[in-house]
Design a protein around this nucleic acid. Structure first.
Length: 300
DNA sequence: ATCCAGGTATGCA
DNA sequence: TGCATACCTGGA
């Protein structure tokens, strides 16, 4: 069929400012959207970004003052201003939160906060965050994005034009492992199947997590097949706005070794250090350090 | 070509 | 508990 015509027929709203105002630099916008917390944003020029979450398809860009603007297909635009504001956590001032981090006594952190000014933790839907990070093990960001696209294309819900949401967990449950594997998920397919089984048979499992104390929320997540400590912490940070979360992956391990001298520390020890050193918003610090390490060389 | 990637589950001291 | 190993897949 004619994807191009379908796409061209999409009428997009005029650009509107996200309210309350959300400020980025182009660097921090790119790092926020395409730096490993979300996997469905793309940009041809690093100026205008197009992304999907839940049943939302949105374009964003910055105005002259670095304020975030959005546009969406007219067909999806009702109530979109609120959903965009929620997704970007517009009611939160990352400068204020960053100010609670120990940058006054930590030169590494101070430099990171300067370099990545405006970097945010997004508030993504919990169910999708679990799905995407369940696919993330042993993968680079580019690969995770490929898996997410395949899942959406093969099993997702149609939005407008050729665009599709990620599949619902119930769709995963009803799809059979072969069709999940066909989405390049590899050995993660049985994890998706097992987790979908659990979530479908126990509705409210994820909703209960949201209000649970951190340790029990973490336990509930790691009880799911394919979800270890790292994935669970990412899900809580990016999908439940638990800012005390401090996921330790290979990048953070490298960063903490290089920048804080934690050579040969185990992930659990690094996480304990991170929480103790950075405090209740350790997750934001983690994202800054992740950005620094990941962009250390021009490669990657 | 061989290796490794935002890890997890499993099996063995 | 603590450490080694296998595991899909794709890009360098």
């Amino acid at each position: 069929m004619n994807t191009r015509e379908t796409d061209a027929s999409l009428a997009w709203t005029r650009w509107k400012l996200v309210k309350p105002t959300v400020r980025f630099s182009y660097r921090s916008l790119r790092e926020t959207l395409d730096g490993g917390q979300s996997f469905r944003w793309n940009s041809a020029d690093c100026r205008t970004w197009e992304g999907i979450w839940s049943r939302n398809l949105v374009r964003v860009r910055l105005d002259q003052q670095g304020r975030l603007q959005w546009s969406s297909p007219e067909a999806l635009a009702v109530g979109m201003d609120e959903r965009v504001a929620d997704y970007f956590v517009a009611d939160m001032d990352p400068e204020k939160i960053a100010d609670t981090l120990p940058w006054r006594s930590d030169d590494v952190l101070r430099k990171a906060l300067e370099q990545w000014k405006g970097l945010r933790i997004l508030r993504q839907p919990l169910d999708e965050t679990l799905m995407t990070f369940l696919c993330s093990s042993n993968k680079r960001i580019i690969h995770i994005k490929q898996i997410c696209e395949a899942l959406a294309r093969n099993l997702g819900e149609p939005l407008v034009g050729p665009h599709r949401s990620l599949p619902k967990w119930s769709t995963i449950r009803n799809s059979g492992e072969a069709s999940i594997r066909a989405c390049k998920t590899g050995y993660r397919a049985p994890y998706l199947m097992g987790t979908s089984e659990r979530l479908v048979s126990d509705r409210g499992y994820l909703d209960d997590l949201k209000s649970a104390p951190y340790p029990s929320a973490l336990r509930a997540l790691t009880a799911l097949p394919g979800v270890g400590t790292k994935v669970a912490e990412c899900v809580l940070l990016f999908g439940a706005a638990r800012m005390e979360s401090f996921p330790v992956d290979t990048w953070i391990a490298k960063a903490m070794a290089r920048l804080y001298g934690l050579h040969d520390w185990k992930p659990q020890q690094i996480a304990a250090f991170g929480r103790a050193h950075f405090g209740p918003y350790a997750g934001l610090a983690q994202q800054y350090l992740f950005a620094m390490e990941r962009n250390r060389k021009s490669s990657n």
